[in-house]
Design a protein around this nucleic acid. Structure first.
Lengths: 207, 207
DNA sequence: GTTTTAGCAATGCAGTTGCACTGTAAGCGG
DNA sequence: CCGCTTACAGTGCAACTGCATTGCTAAAAC
């Protein structure tokens, strides 16, 4: 008795379209995103796009959610690959490094994310989900720092919450500069490692 | 014998228009910036805008340069207010703090800057000036850190160049999160101070 | 078998876009 | 006074925007 999608998988079509949207946004900027443009990129009719997204804002919001899911998937994949109970420093290094736009797909997502940041800066209504992400990340990072401190694997004169804000902001800023091409990936990674050194102490094996 | 601007000051008109553009971009986003929109905001005719900027991209580029000048002016003003040969830590704190979008005018500039960041991420040609700014800032910050180290006022186990990248990226990231409303100004300032603590040692008077 | 309904394409429409073009004042060198 | 250039204002236009609407096919529900 469900609403019963007749033949096609709604979610699949929507992500197909969202992928096209992200390709367009990645190459020509968010302002180049239009129904017809996205449709052409996806190789479908404009009418179909309208069928799956009743309004453009709905499409945008969905695309944003896709980016968030990408990030979440990337992080969990990289983190679980570390095995159980990894050292906090290694965990954070992996996680934050994974969030950096260092290769093509992550640059694409990063571009869209950046464009959406500017987008949501003017449409506060859409920003709620991003706020949640940030808050969650912040809490997680702070928790890791605290754990490291308890294990004697991090400097005790750092405030975990401030350090978390610093780490996350550093990552975001590095991402921005990377996307702008202001400096190369290795510079960003070096800065990230240097920052972890500052928090966890010189980079000996901390575990 | 100059080309002789007949009666009006070209630069003045252009900045007048650019200011209007920034007001529009700050309130409704960069995608809301159109010739007519900007003209209306500036209280002039659309034809006049076209007269002073032959193309929209030219107008955009000029607006970006205005933002950069704002930032430069702010920084030099705040820094010279510190007097001669201020302590590196205080200098950096003032400088980076001044670049953060903490009040209304700086938020406005920050919004435009963020939008332009996404803009230039797709139009690499316009990004050259921004690269220069970043490189200059980086060199300056690294120099300050080095000076502090030489004076024994900073930890010696930090690499000045990496620290400079970290500081600048932190500032940028904090700015992004502030603009997105992800956390309040005092959190950003606390994170900035904590970062300076990490580099210069606990926050006693360092001079 | 008939009636719904989802899936999709196509068209239409009012509004907006950047820009080219034209018109018209007004200052200025000759 | 006369050309020439500058400083605008206004109009026009082709392209494009988001979206509503219509039409048609085919599968699902009855």
């Amino acid at each position: 008795m469900e609403p019963m999608p007749k033949r096609v998988d709604h979610r699949e079509r929507r992500t197909l379209i969202a992928d096209a949207l992200m390709r367009v946004a990645g190459e020509h900027g968010l302002e180049a995103v239009s129904l017809r443009h996205v449709a052409a990129e996806a190789g479908v009719s404009a009418g179909m796009v309208q069928h799956y997204f009743r309004t453009k804002d709905e499409m945008m919001a969905f695309a944003l959610s896709v980016v968030r899911e990408h990030n979440e998937a990337r992080v969990t994949a990289a983190v679980t690959a570390l095995g159980v109970t990894p050292a906090p420093r290694a965990l954070l290094r992996t996680m934050l490094g994974e969030l950096l736009p260092l290769d093509a797909p992550r640059r694409a997502d990063g571009r869209v994310g950046l464009a959406f940041l500017a987008y949501t800066a003017v449409r506060p209504a859409v920003a709620a989900a991003l706020h949640q992400d940030t808050a969650g990340l912040l809490a997680f990072i702070a928790g890791q720092v605290r754990a490291a401190q308890a294990a004697g694997a991090a400097r005790h004169d750092v405030d975990p919450d401030r350090a978390a804000v610093g780490l996350l902001a550093l990552m975001e800023g590095l991402g921005v500069y990377l996307l702008g091409g202001h400096f190369p990936p290795e510079t960003a990674l070096a800065a990230l490692d240097a920052q972890l050194d500052l928090i966890f102490g010189p980079d000996g094996p901390v575990g």
